[in-house]
């Protein structure tokens, strides 16, 4: 009984961790075609903002968590406007370039870059990886310079749940509930809101979306901010559980990427299915060998197998089956 309970809690724990780690990444990748290698550092921003709000400003933890999410969404918006879309540097350069080239001698002016200065990184997978990897290095070192090698952690709230000899962190159980709520929120936003409608249209065909009056730039910016806000919320939720170091984002990155790759293109269904499968694999192996290391190895092996046999991820496979069935009819 205790063993079964243990397995159930381990599954819930893995499921919640994978869902929360992956949700923001899945949205940004699925809708914008941007692989955000700085995703872990967006989680770092949320974790630090939450922790500093509690320890520095004495804000209650639940409010501080919302602060963490909002701060990270705002930070994401800045990153989107500067690094991802290049809108801000392009606008500045469009103003600076004409007077600059007028004052410089012709030969020097010819060496100036043209406009636009930066091409947007949308749907440029490799380029977006390089740019966001650079950003992640800057963010980790920036956090180290500003806040040092670690900051004080907030205590884990809610205490323990006990059943006979078995005890478990109540906060971790709550996290499982929160992960389901996050999935429900993401589903609601994309299925029912005007923004979700625009975002789904932009994913499929941004040219037609523009012809239908959609401001695609604004949709991309909102999507990046939304995905970043979710990453920040993940950081906020795990702030009481992980040690507050500039490299904390790295712990989330592997699960996040594996879940997105295994899940495939569909943001909600893909994340649910991959977190379900991978969480079950990780929890059973961890439980069987009583070792988290074996659990992680099993998770990565499952990901390799999934990539080998389901290159489009689980949802890609489902989509293929549906297409085949339609053609058979």
């Amino acid at each position: 009984m205790v063993n079964g309970l243990n397995l159930a809690f381990q599954f819930l724990d893995s499921f919640a961790f994978i869902v929360l780690a992956a949700a923001g990444l899945a949205i940004i990748f699925g809708i914008m075609g941007v692989i955000n290698l700085a995703h872990g550092e967006f989680i770092l921003v949320g974790a630090y903002a939450t922790t500093l709000a509690v320890t520095g400003l004495s804000v209650p933890l639940p409010v501080a968590m919302l602060v963490g999410a909002v701060v990270t969404a705002a930070f994401g918006l800045v990153v989107e406007r500067t690094v991802i879309s290049g809108a801000v540097p392009n606008r500045l350069w469009a103003r600076l370039e004409p007077p600059l080239s007028a004052t410089l001698p012709d030969q020097a002016a010819a060496l100036l870059p043209g406009t636009p200065l930066v091409e947007p990184l949308y749907d440029r997978l490799a380029d977006s990886m390089v740019a966001t990897f650079g950003l992640s290095l800057v963010m980790v070192q920036g956090a180290r310079i500003v806040f040092g090698n670690s900051i004080d952690q907030v205590a884990t709230p809610l205490g323990e749940l006990s059943y006979g000899a078995f005890s478990y962190s109540a906060y971790r159980v709550v996290l499982a509930g929160v992960s389901v709520a996050v999935l429900a929120l993401v589903y609601y936003v994309f299925a029912y809101t005007d923004y979700g409608m625009r975002a789904r249209a932009v994913i499929q065909d941004d040219r037609t979306a523009r012809a239908m009056g959609v401001d695609t730039e604004r949709t991309y910016a909102a999507t990046f901010a939304f995905g970043s806000g979710l990453a920040g919320f993940t950081g906020a939720l795990f702030a009481p559980l992980v040690s507050m170091q500039p490299t904390l984002g790295g712990q989330f990155l592997v699960e996040a990427f594996v879940a997105v790759v295994v899940g495939g293109a569909s943001v909600v269904v893909g994340t649910v299915l991959s977190a379900g499968v991978l969480g079950a694999v990780e929890a059973s192996v961890t439980n069987y060998f009583d070792s988290q290391t074996f659990g992680r190895i099993a998770l990565l092996l499952a990901a390799i197998l999934a990539l080998r046999f389901l290159p489009g991820g689980i949802t890609g496979y489902i989509e293929r089956l549906r297409t085949r069935r339609r053609e058979d009819r």
Partner: peptide, 24 residues
């Protein structure tokens, strides 16, 4: 003006290749 701003002023277009959203 950006394309969506022209739409807001009353210009609308249907492309040569049918551009409906097949999943919707």
């Amino acid at each position: 003006l950006a394309p969506h701003e022209r739409v807001a002023r009353g210009i609308s277009m249907k492309f040569q290749v049918p551009s409906v959203y097949s999943d919707l």
